[in-house]
Write a protein that binds this DNA or RNA. Structure first.
Lengths: 234, 234
DNA sequence: CGTCTCATTGACACCCTTCAAACGAAGTGG
DNA sequence: CCACTTCGTTTGAAGGGTGTCAATGAGACG
């Protein structure tokens, strides 16, 4: 949405730097990035809340791994309807693309830091190192698996089931056994689950009325009855 | 895209053979499999209409490539709701899994032939041959791309837009410029698009009434006004 | 011709969306 | 410290798009 590029840093890596807000404190900012689990060096970057990390149609020169914070990837239709493909938590990789360009956009849900890993470097490495290639494939397959589950949710589940699935998924990924601190807004949840913000809100309070969850605040969810949630989520 | 079928075929592995109907005519039924574009030998198999190729939960020992016919992969909920993940045409690869087991089921939409390629062989090959690994990754990324587009359709498009998108997609993949011979039933289309069979049927006739398509028979669709379709599909 | 399967059409209900307003929390300035 | 604004969330009322249930129609096959 609003990518403020620092004039100082932009000179170094013009196309790759987001806002430098959080990165300012980071020590080794002028050298190479940290070596990713994939075995390739990357460039560390920071983004403010709602800042765009990359946009649909831009050349996909890098894949990204979340270090801190939460990221969303999404596609939008001409009239503004948005479908969030997924939320990415620390450790997760996003921005995997089949073609040369990004076919989804990515934004920071919260202030966050990510490593951008050049595809060219990655390809080079993967070509010679079978284990690295396998890791990359495993990541992609995992994404595919999640996508297919998401499709089932979007195509065949009702609002209540969708939300139950979402909350359970978040509680597994956060991970905090039965107290989930949602990093995203109701609008994000709605666009992730193929619903409207009103339906998400209504369904949340319904689950609370049924004593399945509890909402101390709108970002905090206590999973009171996980069995019921699992039952709903199928 | 289209894999050419070698006349030489398939070792006899009882556990892996579907119906032998179509295979019966094949001559070299006891030899090695044909070399797949991925560079690994596979076992050729044939399946009759609606026959299961693999089921959710079964060990995923192989990935599959369609040689002839059409395949669907899907997931089902406990109460029978089904979401078809995709249809696979000749040349397409399906059965890519992140874990050890299949998390989707696969069935023959029409009588079909597929090659089953052992994951162990593939992994072995990919470990030493960087180009093979890259091909496999590209296939998986392509699947991911389609999944994410499908998610947008399921989460954010109405019945008319979904059907328009589906028909255009089929017309590209078949490929017959503006006469599409649908290989699948209305129920399959419904379960692919997250609709009911009745809604699919009604929407089809609505598109016909609007002179956007024409339905000589229920399996044959003439795309009269592709511009209108593209407009609907976004 | 009868049967079976699949597709189409109709009537009605309901879940979710839309539109609108009220509410609450957080931040700002007086 | 308290108005005031702003943003996000919740709640309400009404309407519409799809689903559900049921009946009819159309091919395929024996």
């Amino acid at each position: 949405m609003h990518a403020e590029v620092s004039p100082v840093v932009a000179a170094v890596w013009p196309a790759e730097i987001g806002s430098i807000r959080s990165i300012a404190g980071a020590p080794g900012f002028a050298g190479m990035g940290s070596a990713d689990p994939l075995g390739v060096d990357g460039v560390r970057m920071a983004y403010g809340r709602n800042e765009e990390i990359f946009g649909e149609g831009e050349p996909a020169a890098s894949i990204h791994r979340v270090l801190k914070g939460v990221v969303r990837t999404y596609r939008i239709l001409a009239d503004g309807r948005r479908q969030i493909a997924d939320f990415f938590l620390p450790g997760d990789v996003f921005g995997l693309e089949a073609g040369l360009d990004h076919c989804t956009s990515a934004e920071a849900v919260t202030d966050c830091e990510v490593v951008a890993i050049r595809r060219s470097h990655l390809a080079e490495r993967a070509m010679s190192d079978g284990a690295a290639a396998q890791k990359l494939l495993a990541l992609t397959l995992h994404r595919l698996h999640r996508s297919e589950e998401h499709m089932l949710v979007l195509g065949r589940k009702n609002a209540c089931e969708r939300l139950a699935w979402f909350l359970l998924d978040m509680s597994v990924r956060i991970p905090a056994p039965d107290r989930v601190e949602l990093p995203m807004s109701r609008q994000d949840i709605a666009d992730f689950l193929g619903l409207t913000i009103e339906t998400v809100s209504r369904t949340m309070t319904q689950l609370q009325d049924d004593e399945i969850i509890e909402l101390p605040s709108c970002r905090q969810v206590l999973l009171r009855d996980k069995t019921a949630l699992l039952d709903l989520a199928n």
